[in-house]
Amino acid sequence: MIAAVDTVDSSIALDCQGVVKNFRRGRGLKKRITRAVDEATLQIPRGELFGLLGPNGAGKTTLVRCIATLLIPDAGRISVLGHDAFRDSLWCRRRIGLLTSGERTLYWKLSARANLNFFAALYGLSGKARDKRVDYLIELMGLKEAEKERLERYSSGMKQKVSVARAILHDPDLILLDEPSLGLDPQFARFIRGFIKEELNRRQGKTILLTTHYMDEADELCDRIAFINKGRIVDIKSPGEYKRDIPHTEVLEVRVQGQPETAKVQALPGVERFSAEFKDGVTTIKLVLPRAEMVLSDVIELLRGQARILGIDVKQPTLEDVFLYVTGTSLGADTSEDKAEVQ
């Protein structure tokens, strides 16, 4: 008699198959159902640092929350190390570390040590094992001197260090980092990025799913990146592969004062992708096309009559430009209202 074969594939840390999450808003006739995650499928092998890159409102956080079992998907399947995240939710929660964006995710009236002690208890750590782990993490994050101070006296960066320590407190196999450097000053952001790459991924071999809308962060840290736009995973590749996809392409970036009419610029021959973002009184127009000089004089002509041109650059495509090329949406855009309406 042949013994039953255990089909659990533990070489895959995270497996999402056709995950769908809809949100209902309003009531009665005003009821609207929008699709925040639309049949998302991805697989992350153990030890990979995987990025989920997309603009605000693309569905990154919703997908992370589904994986963390905070949300129950409407369809699809999520497995963590071969275990179904919802049938085996307690098993999976023990193996997932979570860091969500925002400062207010800790007890500000408690010290770093008291916070970590409390969350350690939630994962079954107690006594000397807990003390040893908390000591190690406080040392690792450089919080020794301030460990007994209440968090309300900490800077944003220090609070984020405590949040990172909490995410890895129970030594999880899969770490979900949702916008880990959002709102941090450059020095702390650099520390957090270095810690994720060098300590967690390279030294400890953790599998990491990182969401970000910072192109540099994804480019610098991730082995592979999934582009997500309007709830759909558009493509999955390494940063290098993405850039190689558009080798004979240039990006023409024009910055002008005010908000000029750009429809004619967009319609110029040869323009493959277009975006215009208005911020702080300045519109940044980006054109992705084979050769910038094909349209340069036309662009200047079309814009000069309407607004003051502040600068023109011709660049090789970055990951951000590749995102624009692949999805037609700029990473700086807010797409939270652009989701597909299901009903």
Partner: peptide
């Protein structure tokens, strides 16, 4: 969310 995401 951190309480709900824990095994407790």
């Amino acid at each position: 969310e951190y309480i709900i995401a824990s095994p407790t």
